[in-house]
Design a protein around this nucleic acid. Sequence first.
DNA 1: GTTGAAATTAGTACGAA
DNA 2: TTCGTACTAATTTCAAC
Lengths: 223, 223
Amino acid sequence: MSSNSGSAGGAAGRIGIGLELDATHLKILEVLRENGRVSVSALAERVGISRANAYTRFEALRADGVIRRFTAEIDHQRAGLGIVALIFVTVRQQMWRQFRAQLAQMPEVEYCAITTGQHDAMIQVRMADVAEVHAMVTERLANIPAVKATETVFILDEVLRRPYVLPSDRERERGRGTSRRPGSAPSPEPEQGQGQGQGQGLPLGKMRFVGAAEGRAALRDES
Amino acid sequence: MSSNSGSAGGAAGRIGIGLELDATHLKILEVLRENGRVSVSALAERVGISRANAYTRFEALRADGVIRRFTAEIDHQRAGLGIVALIFVTVRQQMWRQFRAQLAQMPEVEYCAITTGQHDAMIQVRMADVAEVHAMVTERLANIPAVKATETVFILDEVLRRPYVLPSDRERERGRGTSRRPGSAPSPEPEQGQGQGQGQGLPLGKMRFVGAAEGRAALRDES
DNA sequence: GTTGAAATTAGTACGAA
DNA sequence: TTCGTACTAATTTCAAC
């Protein structure tokens, strides 16, 4: 549960893939992500394979870590934690390890990610009321030496939350101009492929990418 | 799955609570959130109640919507979607309905929340590579008339993701200065309770709250 | 990778405390 | 309400194909 102290499998994790996922694997994941409690028999039927095969693949996915765990999605409103807030944190350099250790001690933190851009990390918290958010930020977060500054915004409505996106979701949207299969060539268009190193002011003049702040390249070496 | 078009039970949702959750309910949720596939028998044993009682409560939690669904947590890295990005969107007023409709059509969007602060919404997407994020923002998002502007940051590492916070988590952290039970009086201290209407410059001078932009009060009336 | 049959376990119903 | 038990139905395992 709260033993997620280390990396939670983020974008900068390892690349070594142990299990090559075929279409059947993805189908299994698709079903499991919608209904994590289906019996393997029902799963086999839904996917269109035999039960023994389903058991084998299910176990393989679990053992290989593709399926990390099964969990219940809870209505926080009814569970008593209806207030959601995002806290953007600026972390003092060379204090990442301490920052992470402190976070692990805060059970009210649902999600924390290290980001590029203006801030260094984003924290999502669930609270019973707004005052609790305030108290959390001012009394708990602010007392962490690693925290240089914070910026808090409240979530007014969670429009959608998907059980975790899969590559196979992409296949379902066709003929819409931008159909990209995962694993294929990144950019057919010549003007792309420069990744996040691009500046501001892009096509249509509507969006801008925010790159990482300086001196953050050695980020992973500390944790 | 992607039928989450409406509100996903956000902070501004309804308050009517149908089921009063006692300590046993929370214990059940605790177990279920860590292992969504436990049998009800094992659940009963872990919680310390009879099987029949466990079945009754389990069904009640499910029927009442406290448990929304069961899902598999997937390692995106190994599933082929290792790149995570946050896209902060400024939405044209009076176009929220269209914005939401468009989002429902984008399977690569894992999470979307309407926020206070500088931007109007935050979108989290999972992609196979960085170029795909770029393509998504420039070719898909930018083409939505409701989208006025976007700002993209990449997630370098997901430090922690908890299966969904529970009020009972709070009980476990004791004697740390700020122990608040959900449902109790929001603020014992007199200087609190003003909520999100506060300005900038707070205790320790380290953090600031970012309130909602003007003219966003009628947000929920449109959707 | 598939089918079928045995053993185990889960789910249900009902009476008693 | 909650518990305990007996009954029914399903799932998992393991075998051979």
